[in-house]
């Protein structure tokens, strides 16, 4: 889908957020960008989304051109919903910005809300929903345009552990059924090991990609009890420690 070669980004403040980062994204991938704060993982995600431009290096899309609006979904750490709009209207937003009327969008909104488990909450306002449900709305909003690429920037970091586990499991189910490519930024080794097929370790000052690790953890209801999962967590932890030393 995308080849990132030797990408660098330096902010006007002088901070080198990213140096010489190279990464290959294939269709259907579930990639976790894992590292401590300041390692450039969010910067890399913003570059992929086209929200920022690299100072050096290139992003080459297999399609020959960057994705059109709606082909990329983006989920932030906060749900970032419009507080005055209902659940359905919040999910409508990406379609509305492309000139699609509410009536035309209705089937897509209903389908995606059912997918994320928010059926019956169409007319609720964000403040009436829990943090986990707001994040579901945010995910539904990212999915309503049927994107080929879903970018997520620490989406579950602000949630409590029980809600986070539920949303992680639901995200895997969504990925399995939709089949879009996911790039997931996280600073949690457990989260990266649980979700990703490929874990990209990143280190700070300057932000760079240290190494990539493939996961063979089989995803099931009790993945967290799987010895392969525990082994992967340990392997990532050791690798991270070695890289940060």
């Amino acid at each position: 889908m995308l080849t990132i070669s030797s990408v660098g980004r330096r902010f006007p403040t002088g901070t080198e957020a990213l140096r010489d980062a190279s990464l290959r994204l294939n269709a259907g991938d579930f990639v976790a960008l894992l590292g401590p704060s300041g390692c450039g993982k969010s910067t890399l995600l913003r570059l992929i989304a086209g929200l920022d431009r690299p100072d050096s290096g290139t992003l080459t899309w297999d399609a020959g051109q960057p994705p059109a609006p709606g082909e990329v979904g983006y989920v932030f750490q906060d749900a970032t919903l419009l507080p005055w709009a209902s659940t359905a209207d919040n999910v409508w937003l990406p379609l509305r910005l492309r000139g699609i009327s509410r009536d035309q969008a209705e089937p897509a909104i209903a389908a995606v809300l059912a997918r994320v488990g928010l059926k019956g909450f169409e007319s609720s306002r964000p403040r009436q929903l829990s943090g986990g449900m707001r994040m579901r709305v945010s995910i539904a909003r990212a999915l309503v345009t049927k994107p080929r690429l879903l970018l997520m920037d620490e989406p579950f970091a602000a949630l409590d552990e029980f809600t986070r586990h539920k949303l992680q499991a639901d995200l895997l189910a969504l990925h399995a059924s939709i089949g879009c490519t996911v790039v997931f930024v996280t600073h949690s080794i457990y989260e990266a090991a649980f979700l990703a097929r490929r874990v990209v370790l990143m280190t700070p000052r300057p932000g760079r990609i240290a190494r990539e690790m493939d996961s063979s953890v089989s995803h099931s209801a009790d993945t967290r009890l799987d010895p392969a999962y525990a082994a992967l967590v340990a392997e990532i932890s050791q690798a991270m420690e070695a890289e940060l030393r």
């Binding site: 989304a49 929200l51 990406p94 345009t145």
Partner: peptide
Amino acid sequence: ELGDLFGLY
């Protein structure tokens, strides 16, 4: 972030 989102679409 909401500004980014609008820009993205």
